[in-house]
Write a protein that binds this DNA or RNA. Structure first.
Lengths: 219, 219
DNA sequence: TTGAGATTCAAACGACCGTTTAATACAATT
DNA sequence: AATTGTATTAAACGGTCGTTTGAATCTCAA
């Protein structure tokens, strides 16, 4: 049994050690992945003792679970902010709202609601036991929301294979603009400016709407 | 100076230790990345001594360089096999040839010419000093080939920003189907069957040609 | 003031990391 | 047979890893 109560008692009255650990770990895990960060790195960044990780989170993996959980929550609450607003628009406008609301956050390097994508990138190359949970709570809801829009545009059942393929085509284009350390290090002009990003969002919407309409005429 | 000559002399006449190390390291680095594999893992898989890595490759990073170099060469020779054949076709047919030739290799888990994509995935989340070299020799040639096709389809200059955006839209769709350990672990029905993959290739071609034609009418 | 529980801390644990060393085994040439 | 240069080997080096330990320190209730 570690500790459970918020923090009615502590040596100093400033931000609780647990919160500092969570904040530092979120930043470092998003940047370097679970295996690329040591608990000593996290403890140093949080100005805490190494043993505090085990005391407050029951080990490195427990801290990672807490980070992932809060990151998924941050993303989903960020989605609700602009997705619910367009719930009664045409599917074309819904797709535009999705992409223009999603892409700037995807491309931002300091948007807290997008850190989950960095965690997911590391999970792709080096999965942890948390991977299935991320897939279910961090990815599937988005996929299903997009599938609803696309199936209306295709005028077909949501489980039509063309829906899944179009969803991938849209999502792949958006995710490609998530900055990573490879492209930042290897390509000039990366990451993109805000103005370019807005033009890219417009491009993805037009490109994808035309693609979907073409796919709708087939099979 | 380590060794240079092929292997006129060795304790045993079987496959040279250097070649076994390179083969084992390619498989392991592609699977787990540079940081996720220890030289002891590689030596064990190659039935060699740990010190052999330093003797033949001047350290772990030297071995990684050799792996990356051979993987890029394998991919480029695989490209030439089907890209040069379509050099005088219409740009539409060239795009179809590119996608239908590229996607099955991307999606294959045992195609030696596609291991470079696994190495690149790890580089994205955790870059090594080899990252810039991979970008220049493993990525740029493909991008420029695609840009040539797209600029003909758009009927504009190759450095028009719309070209780069369409290239990303195509390449992002293709790369999304590269299997990774996250999706294999977290999603059912993954990776895709050969038949589904052929249908996906056709989808990407139709989706993208329609998208490009739409973009061609703008700006 | 005292006791109990929560929290922090320096230190140590065993395991693994990449690399180095020095001795040895081998084949080909003197 | 002796020498030379290449290749392999077991062992050890210093360092970092995640975790554990046990004592010290803090807050708050009795």
């Amino acid at each position: 049994m570690t500790a459970r109560r918020p923090s009615p008692n502590a040596r100093r009255p400033d931000a609780a050690t647990r919160e500092r650990l969570l904040a530092a770990a979120t930043r470092l895990f998003a940047q370097h992945g679970f295996g690329g960060v040591s608990v000593r790195d996290i403890a140093r960044a949080a100005r805490a003792n190494v043993a505090a990780v085990n005391y407050h989170f029951d080990g490195k993996l427990g801290l990672y679970r807490a980070v992932v959980h809060s990151a998924v929550q941050a993303m989903r609450s960020g989605d609700d902010a602009f997705l619910t607003a367009a719930s009664d628009a045409s599917p074309e406008e819904q797709l535009r709202t999705y992409v223009t609301g999603y892409l700037p956050r995807i491309a931002s390097t300091d948007d807290r609601t997008a850190w989950i994508h960095d965690l997911m990138r590391h999970e792709m190359s080096d999965p942890t036991p948390v991977a299935p949970w991320i897939a279910e709570h961090g990815i599937l809801p988005r996929i299903e929301y997009l599938a609803g829009i696309v199936s209306k545009l295709l005028d077909c059942r949501p489980n039509d294979k063309r829906v899944a393929r179009c969803v991938v085509s849209i999502q792949a284009q958006c995710l490609f603009y998530r900055p990573d350390r490879f492209r930042t290090a290897a390509f000039k002009g990366w990451p993109l400016s805000d103005a370019e990003l807005a033009a890219v969002a417009d491009h993805i919407v037009e490109f994808s709407l035309a693609g979907i309409k073409r796919i709708a005429t087939r099979q």
